[in-house]
Design a binder for these strands. Structure first.
Lengths: 138, 138
DNA sequence: ATATATCCTATCTATTTGATAGTATTTGTT
DNA sequence: AACAAATACTATCAAATAGATAGGATATAT
């Protein structure tokens, strides 16, 4: 399961992508209202996306958030990794958050191969998805 | 990520399958020692698998655990669902633990389709795996 | 100045994860 | 009958994570 936080992050980015035609940044309050996301929680998420160079922000009146890159260059996996961390089902199989299991030697691990397969099939799908491709589904 | 508990469960079942040639049940203490799983925690896991008709247990001297069905008929997904619950990445996309999202209407959800795909590819792999097929990799 | 937006720090509650302790009960052996 | 050895059960616990909320600081357009 991905966290609510991660789901909110993706939906917020899609909303921003869908509403950036004019040059005014998109406000937290608008995203929160339209996507039914708790406002203060959303603030934290958007700031985290800004800290990770997915968004840029503008403070003060007429402030808000804008995508720092074209929506077609923001990958779904990138967002998921920022918010939730590893995508793989086992730490010892994660490409970006690898961690050895305490209790087992990987050479003799019975289940590693299966979860490597799952990881590869999953990434094949998710790597193909960008914020842009998600907006097109509307 | 699957939980440690789930990883322990799978490894314990594989160990039992690998050690049931004679007719004596496999003891918690042996599994715990060989697979480096905390003993008391493993007890809880094995009891849970017994309650869900994956294992049968025998108490007292020469007691222990045995597979209730042939290893080839215990599916990996079944074990994962017992211990960790849903396999899907979104509740609204889960086959066995479906739950509607609070904040969005599924017809207009931008991300549902992607995670349905991930679910299907994941289950294609996991549904093919049984405790038997995992033991053969040794 | 003022209104309005993000920024930041602190805090909070509930749940889940991962586990341990101690006792009760069952069973085989002597 | 006594004992040893195994699971069964109940209670508890600590740490981490999830999912937020509150309140004030700071920046900016008008």
């Amino acid at each position: 399961m991905i966290s609510n936080k991660c789901k909110y992050a993706i939906k917020a980015l899609v909303y921003i992508a869908n509403n950036e035609q004019d040059d005014r940044p998109v406000m937290t309050a608008d995203i929160a209202r339209e996507q039914q996301i708790p406002r203060k929680f959303l603030e934290i998420i958007l700031r985290e996306l800004r800290n990770n160079r997915i968004l840029e922000s503008k403070r003060g009146k007429d402030g808000g958030f804008r995508l720092l890159r074209p929506a077609s260059e923001i990958n779904l996996t990138e967002v998921m990794r920022i918010i939730d961390g590893p995508i793989a089902m086992l730490p010892c199989v994660s490409l970006n958050y690898y961690r050895k299991c305490d209790e087992c030697e990987e050479e003799s691990c019975e289940i590693k191969a299966v979860f490597e397969q799952v990881r590869d099939r999953t990434l094949e799908i998710l790597n193909d998805q960008t914020i842009k491709s998600l907006t097109l589904q509307l």
